[in-house]
């Protein structure tokens, strides 16, 4: 329950309200983690929030978190000057375990900031690209200005043969890319549904539609993985806040397969 101390090395602005924070341990070795896991980041004097790790699991130093400025703690984090000490607990929870998709296609469906927890999984695929067949990234953002990791996506497409489809909800003047919902891309994306592992992260409504679309394409529900968000506090299943019926999402999740989640997603306020 006691955080390790990390120092802010530098911050990379991603969008107007989102920043990637690079942290270096002040008290020991780098933090080993699995793609999809999260930590509890503590801004001293302000508080603690759960943030997914967005860096490369094969290169955990510096430790990357992509943080959206939406509250007091996240504001303190995104505005932290280099050298600022930050508390880190974790890593916590289940990972994407993308290696389960070895030998088949990988479909990644991301919405908004949901691309951040998926970035480590994509980097893992990229590092062992020949282990996988077709790799498709379908990414939906609110507007072109909200698109995360544009440089990464260009690299993944050009250097690693990943099919990247980006779509936005609002297409302002000058935007020549796709406009529309990311989940509708699922129906026409090029992958073999029966031999695919699908990884989905975004707002819960978007994940439900994405999972429905993937299931309709024929991807088995056991091969569709969603990263769930609830009120993670302790990270170790003790405090109770992140319960989704019988699940403690901070230890049983956040990544869970759709066959397990489907009955729970349909009940309101569960």
């Amino acid at each position: 329950m006691v955080p390790r101390l990390f120092g802010v090395v530098r911050t990379y602005p991603d969008t107007l309200d989102t920043v990637t924070l690079a942290l270096e341990p002040l008290d020991g070795p780098p933090l080993a983690f699995r793609a999809g896991q999260f930590t509890m980041l503590h801004a001293f004097g302000v508080g603690e929030v759960p943030i997914s790790i967005s860096g490369d699991p094969t290169r955990p130093d510096p430790l990357l978190h992509t943080v959206r400025d939406v509250g007091a703690v996240t504001h303190a984090l995104v505005t932290a000057a280099p050298g600022t000490a930050v508390g880190v607990r974790g890593p916590f929870g289940s990972g994407w375990e993308v290696a389960d998709g070895t030998g088949g296609d990988v479909v990644v469906v991301a919405g908004g900031i949901g691309l951040a927890p998926l970035r480590p999984a994509i980097l893992e695929v990229v590092s062992r690209r020949s282990d996988y067949g077709r790799v498709v990234l379908l990414y939906g953002a609110r507007s072109p200005a909200d698109i995360l990791f544009a440089d990464d996506m260009a690299t993944w497409a050009q250097r690693h043969g990943i099919v990247v489809e980006v779509t936005v909800d609002y297409g302002p003047p000058g935007w020549s890319g796709r406009v529309g919902l990311v989940t509708t891309l699922v129906a026409r994306a090029g992958f073999d549904p029966l031999h695919s592992l699908a990884l989905v992260c975004g707002p819960e409504v978007m994940m439900r539609y994405a999972a429905t679309a993937l299931s309709a394409r024929g991807v088995p529900d056991t091969r569709i993985r969603l990263s769930m968000e609830r009120n993670m506090r302790c990270g170790i299943g003790l405090c109770g806040h992140c319960q989704l019926r019988e699940l403690f999402l901070c230890v049983d999740g956040p990544v869970l397969s759709y066959d397990r989640l489907a009955p729970l997603l349909d009940v309101r306020e569960l």
Partner: peptide, 8 residues
């Protein structure tokens, strides 16, 4: 769904 402005 886009009306919901999920990412906003």
């Amino acid at each position: 769904i886009r009306l919901l402005d999920l990412y906003g």
